[in-house]
Amino acid sequence: MLNSLPLLDKKVLVPRGKDQAKSFSQLVERFGGIPVEIPLIAFRPIASNERIQDCLRALDTYDWIIFTSNVTVETFFSFLEDGVAVLPKVAVIGKKTEEVLKEKGVQAEFVPSVYVAEEFVEEFLPILEGGSKVLIPKGNLAREYIATALTEAGTQVDEVIIYETYLPEESRLKVRGMLADGEVDILTFTSPSTVDHFMEVVKEFGLYEPMSNCIVSCIGPVTEKKLHEYGLTVHASPKEYTVKDMINSTIDFLKKASLK
């Protein structure tokens, strides 16, 4: 039984909202774990402004538009008054982003083999024609790596902020109670923002000690780097940047730890 349920009775933080947490939580339950759903990030479109409207009116002047997350896709399309516009060629990062785009009736023409900004740039630059013009819709906390790298390579890049990322107040209180009461065994982080928001609560309420008793898992090198910046030990960080691989990597860590 223990071998078939490697997460038996382990309480696992699922840092996503109700709508996004289902598949993540089901995976935890499949291995015997107990999902603790607390969204560490939420998203809201910013009020439409002249900058956004200028970019939308000029869509036909761009050669490419880059979507780096499914949230970016959903938010961008919410600004299109007449539904799907005639878009330039589309590049995306991530399977989920590509899937959401397909649901909108749009096919991505470029998807990198690895879903991180650095690999995206390395693989995308060779297919860009000289003097190309690129639009990057983004959140207020998004990295600038792609825009900077493309600009340095001679591409004209326009970035436009279309949504903001925040920590829901309800989640702040839940994180505090969960840690203070020792109600979590495994912490999972899916982006640098989830780390920042979690640590914001840890700092505010002085919860370093209870956190030190938890196993820490994450997706992607950028998230792992953010955890290290806070001085945290990362116990599981898979080579493939998916929730499934993160859970499997966590299970591998638990198995190795049990043999010591």
Rank of each mutant, 00 (worst) to 15 (best):
79 F>M: 04
18 K>W: 09
233 T>Q: 11
122 E>Y: 12
45 P>F: 06
20 Q>H: 10
88 P>I: 01
108 A>V: 06
131 G>D: 06
78 S>N: 08
68 T>N: 03
93 I>T: 07
232 L>F: 04
3 N>H: 14
171 S>A: 11
180 A>W: 11
144 E>L: 11
165 T>S: 12
59 L>P: 11
169 E>S: 15
18 K>L: 13
200 E>R: 08
42 A>T: 10
196 D>I: 15
70 N>D: 11
254 L>Y: 00
71 V>C: 12
243 V>K: 04
200 E>H: 05
62 Y>P: 03
181 D>W: 10
118 E>Y: 07
171 S>W: 03
24 F>D: 05
128 L>N: 07
75 T>F: 05
254 L>T: 04
114 V>T: 11
163 Y>G: 13
109 E>P: 12
110 F>L: 06
49 N>S: 05
208 Y>S: 14
1 M>L: 13
116 V>T: 14
222 V>A: 04
1 M>T: 13
167 L>F: 08
31 F>L: 08
209 E>L: 15
78 S>A: 10
71 V>E: 15
234 V>W: 01
224 E>R: 15
143 R>G: 07
226 K>T: 11
16 R>A: 01
135 L>K: 08
148 T>I: 15
1 M>S: 14
35 P>Y: 03
22 K>H: 12
227 L>I: 02
189 F>V: 00
229 E>W: 04
99 E>S: 13
147 A>T: 03
72 T>W: 05
81 E>T: 14
197 H>N: 13
226 K>D: 08
157 V>W: 00
53 Q>T: 14
3 N>R: 15
148 T>N: 13
135 L>W: 09
175 V>H: 03
135 L>P: 07
143 R>W: 09
226 K>G: 02
95 K>T: 14
173 L>W: 13
164 E>R: 14
200 E>G: 01
105 G>E: 09
180 A>L: 13
128 L>Y: 02
77 F>M: 09
167 L>D: 03
175 V>Q: 00
142 A>V: 02
244 K>W: 00
67 F>H: 03
258 S>R: 13
112 P>C: 10
